[in-house]
């Protein structure tokens, strides 16, 4: 089985002190750690598990600048066979639609029975790339997948819906899956695989191979800003004790308890 996993290198912002930079269109990144996007680590693991079960090849692809090669190497160390970087620097500002077109331009010429992506990226939270890519390739797809089983030619994909409901889809391959966190337990890399990965060549594809004129954006970023405090929001300040007492007071005043 030939499998493709699409991964993205993102800054870890969940617990960081995030500031908007002087361009007003990006955040200050020089004090941020970068990692593989969280749901992509689960997508990659799902792809590795499938490859281990059915044998075949696993190719990882990332649209990113040079640093993304570190992330691709991590994927190689964990079990991917080949890695491709699409040079983000060649294609200007990217939205999910444009990223999906770039991926399509490369993937259409690769053998693929299954494609895995994360369900959402923790930098822009667009959640567009996987599903747009499936449409561009004309493939059946399932988003936000929490379990996959393969039975002959049929793939059973399970998706979490609101209210604790599970949706069960029976699909045929080739298909694309956007993977939810928690579906599996992403693995560590072994030192043997790390040494191997360190020496592997990463294929780099840029504007020489992909005609940039055909690739267009759907949206452009105007400005980044922190949400203004809404009229009904009240920001509490003070010591932990003071804030606690105030919250207790508010809960009582509003009759919430």
């Amino acid at each position: 089985m030939d499998i493709i996993a699409c991964i993205k290198r993102v800054p870890q912002t969940a617990e960081a002190d995030v500031k908007i930079d002087s361009s007003g269109k990006d955040i200050v990144k020089d004090r941020l750690q970068f990692d593989m996007n969280e749901s992509d680590t689960y997508a990659l693991e799902e792809a590795i598990l499938l490859k281990e079960k059915f044998s075949g090849s696993l190719t990882v692809i990332s649209v990113g600048t040079f640093d993304a090669e570190d992330t691709l190497r991590i994927a190689l160390a964990k079990g991917a066979d080949n890695a491709i970087r699409i040079k983000a620097e060649d294609f200007g500002e990217l939205d999910g639609y444009k990223t999906a077109q770039l991926l399509k331009a490369v993937i259409k010429d690769l053998k693929h029975d299954a494609i895995f992506t994360g369900c959402i990226a923790t930098d822009d939270y667009y959640s567009q790339v996987g599903v747009t890519l499936a449409e561009l390739l004309g493939m059946p797809h399932a988003s936000l997948v929490t379990k996959i089983e393969i039975d002959g030619n049929t793939v059973h994909a399970y998706r979490e819906l609101e209210g604790g409901l599970l949706e069960h889809l029976a699909m045929s391959l080739p298909a694309l899956f956007t993977i939810q966190t928690g579906i599996n337990e992403p693995r560590y890399a072994s030192l043997i695989a790390i040494r191997r990965a360190a020496k592997k060549e990463i294929k780099v594809i840029g504007k020489e191979e992909i005609n940039a004129e055909d690739i267009v954006s759907f949206s452009s970023l105007e400005k980044l800003f922190t949400p203004p405090v809404g009229e009904r929001a009240e920001i509490l300040s003070g010591t932990l004790d003071e804030i606690g007492t105030r919250v207790q007071g508010i809960v009582k005043e509003k009759g919430l308890l």
Binding site: Q12, A14, E15, A16, D17, R31, L32, Q33, D35, M36, T41, R73, I74, A77, Y188, A189, L191, I194, A197
Partner: peptide, 28 residues
């Protein structure tokens, strides 16, 4: 050191390391 560079270390340490790097203390 080799494993950390390849994202192969206990998950509960990731948040602390990232907080320390971005805010200068492990508490964030």
């Amino acid at each position: 050191r080799i494993l950390v560079d390849y994202d192969s270390y206990p998950a509960e340490l990731k948040g602390v390391i990232s907080r320390l790097y971005s805010s200068g203390n492990p508490l964030g």
